[in-house]
Design a protein around this nucleic acid. Structure first.
Length: 358
DNA sequence: AAGCCGGGGTA
DNA sequence: TACCCAGGCTT
């Protein structure tokens, strides 16, 4: 391999300075109370593309409701999604439960410490596999995420585009060379803490960095221009009309989204794709697609919601119907109280306060 | 390799 | 706005 970047660095001294800093400065986080593999696993899934502060309350609630793999394995998927409501990337929740069920059935409830077995579980990719093996089982395996690539792109002056999959393998190689064989758990977590608190994306606090003397980018004064990352393309915009359809019993129509794709398995208020359907056709379109005959009223609020790859602009309108039942099995009439038991995506949660309003 | 998949926080 | 975040799955 290409070890030029490692020639100038004293790996053992780097490890020592990093680990000493970590011991004194590590963050006090709920999933660090112990190294229980299930807790590590759940935390790592929740932390995918999600900040620590966002995860903490979800993690605590989740652990209270599902303390071990057995409670989670036996839960209803809709209840798990309700626990995940607002956290995003809902396939994480579905995959986690699928994997937990496999652990219960195939491994007698014990989370595998074998890399091949662990990595074959649904939702456990290269990063999460490395994180669980190192943190829970103290195996010297890299756990390369965006944080780690940022830190090492600077320490080793690596200019490869970190959005490329080949680049991730390069970092896995280097971390494999650098990781402490005595305390891989602390090493991996130390890099994460360093990336989150000091080696930040913008204006890194190099003055407080425990490994600044080993950092090639700092020596060259180019830490702000690393890592190199290709720009993401802009999101496409989509317009919808969301309908709060009330019947004479005061109940509202909600709809379960398909089992795959965006917001899979979550519930929402019926939506008309306003890019495709002109206003004069709304009533007919609703009748044909939802089998609901409703009188659509004026707009009561507008909601903009930015996803990673789409932007929704939703015009929310009240509507009334004389129907008391719906023929489509993905549809339901529910009271405002009942509605709160269903998992809703955030943009639709924001519509709920407008239900009671007159 | 590129696209899909949420939501919140920051400069 | 734009960018970022303890990524993985599908195509």
């Amino acid at each position: 391999m290409n070890d030029k970047r490692l020639e100038h660095i004293n790996i053992s001294a780097f490890q020592q300075d990093l680990l000493r800093w970590y011991e004194e400065n590590k963050r006090n986080l709920p999933w660090r109370e112990n190294n229980n593999a299930y807790r590590v696993w759940v935390s790592e899934i929740m932390l995918q593309q999600t900040k620590v502060d966002t995860v903490i309350p979800y993690f605590n609630r989740f652990m209270e409701k599902y303390p071990t793999v057995y409670e989670l394995a036996e839960a209803e998927q809709q209840d798990v999604l309700k626990q995940w409501e607002g956290l995003g990337y809902y396939s994480r929740a579905r995959n986690l439960q699928t994997a937990v069920r496999e652990v219960v059935e195939t491994y007698d409830g014990k989370i595998p410490d074998d890399p091949k077995q662990l990595g074959s579980l649904k939702g456990i990719g290269p990063y999460t596999k490395g994180a669980i093996l190192s943190i829970a089982y103290n195996q010297p395996i890299p756990a390369v995420d965006g944080n780690v690539m940022r830190v090492f792109s600077r320490v080793l002056h690596i200019e490869e585009d970190i959005t490329q999959s080949s680049t991730k393998k390069l970092f896995e190689y280097y971390v494999g060379e650098m990781i402490s064989k005595e305390d891989p758990s602390s090493f991996n977590q130390a890099i994460m803490d360093l990336g989150a608190t000091i080696c930040t994306p913008k204006q890194p606090l190099c003055m407080f960095c425990p490994v600044m003397e080993y950092c090639q980018a700092y020596v060259e004064g180019i830490q702000e221009s690393l890592p190199v990352k290709k720009k993401a393309k802009k999101q496409q915009k989509k317009k919808y009309i969301a309908l709060l359809i009330q019947n004479k019993e005061g109940k509202y129509v909600i709809e379960k989204r398909p089992d795959s794709g965006l917001l899979a398995g979550l519930w929402q208020f019926p939506m008309i794709p306003a890019d495709e359907i002109v206003e004069s056709d709304w009533h007919r379109w609703l009748l044909e697609n939802y089998k609901i005959d409703a009188e659509i009223k004026g707009s009561c609020t507008a909601i903009k919601h930015v996803f990673s790859h789409i932007i929704w602009n939703v015009d929310v309108r009240k509507a009334t119907t004389n129907q008391e039942t719906v023929s489509d099995s993905r549809l339901k009439f529910v009271s405002i109280e009942e509605l709160k038991e269903y998992p809703f995506p955030v943009p639709h949660q924001k519509m709920i306060p407008f239900l009671e309003e007159k």
